[in-house]
Amino acid sequence: MPDNKQSQLTIWGRANSVNVQKVLWCLAELDLPYRRIDAGMAFGKNDQPEYLAMNPNGRVPTLVDGDYVLWESNSIMRYLNPAYGKGSSIYPASPRARAGVDRWLDWTLSTLQPVDRPVFWALVRTPAEKRDMAAIQQDADAEAVQWRIVEAQLASRRFIEGDDFTIADIALGAYARRWFGVEGIAKPRLPQLERWFAQFAERPGFKQFIAPPMS
């Protein structure tokens, strides 16, 4: 794609949203220029008619590419790679390899995110004096069950779908940062997950958008 087309990319969403972070990390991997507009939570805007006309869910992120608008973070990553990622291997072209990546993108939203959210909100966005640690530990135990699935997958693979880093690692890696980053709960030792996480923790996109303190 020509550079003048790339310059039209706009991301609406606050930088501390895990779903926005996934897209920003993906953009960094593809070395794509873009502009970002804060929206959501303290920044507002996502409940305004202008935003709802783009994204009727009122959630972030939303991608604007010229006259094309797309919401849902994993769908945005799926779009950016064939549209702008010429030569990139982070979203494979072969049907089977791509389907393998897609299943983890879907699993992250359908299975992992629902058990991650209560733990993250309780330990990061709830004042300490209002936390029910017994209930939070129960939620953490439920989340650990899902991370054990990832642990087993990684036992015979360098990355989640083989030897190559893909957008499946971006999607899961953003949540893994939250899992490793929350404190005050008992978590099982997952050595394969730790090994996998360490492999991409130094990637520039991760360091810039995922690694900063959670809020």
Rank of each mutant, 00 (worst) to 15 (best):
residue 206 F to S: 02
residue 167 I to F: 10
residue 49 P to I: 04
residue 142 A to W: 07
residue 113 Q to A: 15
residue 34 Y to H: 05
residue 107 W to Y: 05
residue 187 K to P: 01
residue 132 D to T: 01
residue 64 V to T: 10
residue 17 S to T: 02
residue 43 F to T: 05
residue 60 V to P: 04
residue 107 W to A: 02
residue 154 L to V: 05
residue 76 I to D: 12
residue 102 D to H: 03
residue 48 Q to F: 08
residue 35 R to M: 10
residue 153 Q to L: 06
residue 75 S to Q: 05
residue 80 L to R: 03
residue 160 I to T: 01
residue 62 T to I: 04
residue 194 E to G: 04
residue 68 Y to A: 04
residue 165 F to E: 02
residue 33 P to C: 04
residue 95 P to L: 13
residue 117 R to A: 14
residue 133 M to S: 11
residue 119 V to Q: 00
residue 116 D to P: 03
residue 39 A to W: 09
residue 197 F to N: 02
residue 46 N to R: 00
residue 144 A to V: 08
residue 85 G to A: 03
residue 168 A to H: 13
residue 59 R to S: 12
residue 191 P to N: 07
residue 59 R to W: 10
residue 4 N to Q: 14
residue 22 K to Q: 04
residue 132 D to R: 02
residue 31 D to Y: 10
residue 54 M to R: 12
residue 70 L to D: 05
residue 86 K to C: 08
residue 137 Q to F: 00
residue 100 G to S: 14
residue 203 R to F: 00
residue 162 G to T: 02
residue 100 G to N: 15
residue 176 A to N: 05
residue 186 A to P: 11
residue 96 R to F: 12
residue 20 V to Y: 11
residue 34 Y to S: 04
residue 181 G to R: 05
residue 102 D to R: 01
residue 211 A to P: 05
residue 189 R to E: 15
residue 65 D to P: 00
residue 204 P to L: 08
residue 65 D to A: 01
residue 213 P to C: 08
residue 199 Q to Y: 05
residue 71 W to H: 03
residue 52 L to R: 06
residue 123 L to Y: 08
residue 28 A to S: 09
residue 129 E to R: 04
residue 23 V to I: 00
residue 85 G to D: 02
residue 108 T to E: 07
residue 179 W to T: 12
residue 136 I to E: 03
residue 81 N to P: 07
residue 111 T to G: 11
residue 187 K to I: 02
residue 139 D to S: 15
residue 142 A to H: 07
residue 66 G to L: 00
residue 211 A to M: 08
residue 207 K to L: 13
residue 90 I to E: 06
residue 98 R to F: 03
residue 19 N to S: 09
residue 22 K to V: 00
residue 150 V to C: 11
residue 36 R to S: 09
residue 122 A to M: 06
residue 147 W to R: 04
residue 60 V to N: 06
residue 189 R to M: 13
residue 48 Q to D: 06
residue 105 L to T: 04
residue 5 K to T: 14
residue 214 M to F: 14
residue 49 P to N: 07
residue 144 A to F: 11
residue 32 L to G: 09
residue 162 G to A: 02
residue 157 R to P: 08
residue 10 T to C: 12
residue 43 F to N: 09
residue 71 W to T: 04
residue 152 A to R: 15
residue 83 A to T: 01
residue 42 A to F: 12
residue 59 R to F: 13
residue 62 T to Q: 06
residue 56 P to K: 10
residue 124 V to H: 06
residue 146 Q to H: 12
residue 65 D to K: 04
residue 61 P to C: 12
residue 18 V to F: 14
residue 57 N to F: 14
residue 37 I to M: 09
residue 77 M to G: 01
residue 175 Y to V: 05
residue 25 W to E: 00
